[in-house]
Design a protein around this nucleic acid. Structure first.
Ligand code: FES
Ligand code: FES
Lengths: 182, 182
DNA sequence: CAATAACCAACTAAATTAGTCAGGAATTCT
DNA sequence: AGAATTCCTGACTAATTTAGTTGGTTATTG
């Protein structure tokens, strides 16, 4: 199991999704602008996340990505593993043929360590990070700074799709604010 | 904190050192042959391990590398950190200036996760792996297969340096066996 | 002196990461 | 129906990292 910037981007983006999940789909364009990651690169990462069944894509205007499962059931380990396909812990990939057909020390060492590490990261869920004090507030502040009226826009769409109970006044208010910016 | 093959090689090599530590210095040439890693690449890795104070080099014939501390006081985390200098957990490297001078969500997330991970790997020492049942035997088997008479050679040298209490008969026996191979 | 083995620096090749480009397909809004 | 939005796809490029190479120098032993 590797731990690289690739996995970091993915976890970061998934966190973003988890925070805004109540407000409906989040577009990659928003995440890209917000976190300073290239849009197309995000698309590549999300292609894998989708294939792994961690997120669901919703096409068309008002669409975006949503968590396929509750944030409390998505672990950091799952996210990292799904983008880092190269999970060859050992050199022999299972069968101990590294040294004249026999297991080398490395084999035992890394399967063991890797298991422990995986176990550890499996115990940490997205929800645990979202619920940390301060995070929702911090997120909302930044959303406003870059003119990201996620709530209004998504909930407006949500009416049509009949997915959420929404506050119509709030929607109208934020949509007006968005217009005023233009 | 990254977790790559580079760190893996280092941990593997350090394990080798720890196993044979009783018998004195281990040459990089031995590790190279034994584990199939390029000699010069190992040299690069050990340069860092030495600068981090994890190993000590002993020059000249009979020399090699030794652990600078007991295996029970060297953690996996230390090894990985010393070769993976690129420990920029966040993009901002400390000060939260990532997004218009303010901390981004990522900042909190990764310092937090990284701390936990580091803590976890700090709790695992080299000694814990050396002492796992089967490892010393497995190691000795392989040593013989590639004609690595570590014990005899190193201890013969050790007499001169007055470092160890040695079994002279064993030394003579293995040295004879080595000669016979040629 | 010759052999050994750590040390050192600069260079190359392969792989991975990060980003770009140019479109296509599903969905919604007007 | 047509325009706008957004996911989705594949192929291509640049930068960085990993892995290995070459060609030495220095300390130590015998
Ligand atoms: S890595 Fe599995 S036997 Fe060497
Ligand atoms: S990474 Fe530290 S503020 Fe963004």
């Amino acid at each position: 199991m590797r731990l690289s910037t690739k996995g970091r981007y993915s976890v970061t983006a998934m966190l973003d999704l988890a925070i805004h999940d109540k407000a409906g789909p989040v577009t990659l364009a928003d995440i890209s602008q917000c976190q300073g990651i290239s849009l197309s690169y995000l698309e590549q990462l999300f292609a894998r996340l989708r294939k792994s069944g961690l997120v669901k894509g919703v096409r068309g205007p008002g669409g975006g990505y949503r968590l396929a499962r509750p944030a409390s059931e998505i672990s950091i380990a799952e996210i990292i593993c799904s983008v880092d396909e190269n999970v060859d812990v050992t050199r022999c990939k299972g069968e101990g043929n590294c040294q004249d057909g026999g297991k080398c020390l490395t084999h035992e060492l890394w399967t063991n360590l890797s298991n422990k590490l995986h176990e550890f990261l499996s115990g940490i869920t997205l929800a645990q990070f979202v619920e940390r004090p301060g995070i929702p507030e911090l997120s909302m502040q930044r959303d406003k700074m870059i003119g990201r009226f996620v709530l209004a826009k998504k909930q407006a769409v949500a009416i049509n799709r009949g997915v959420f109970n929404i506050n119509k006044e709030l929607v109208a208010k934020e949509l007006a604010a968005k217009e005023a910016l233009r």
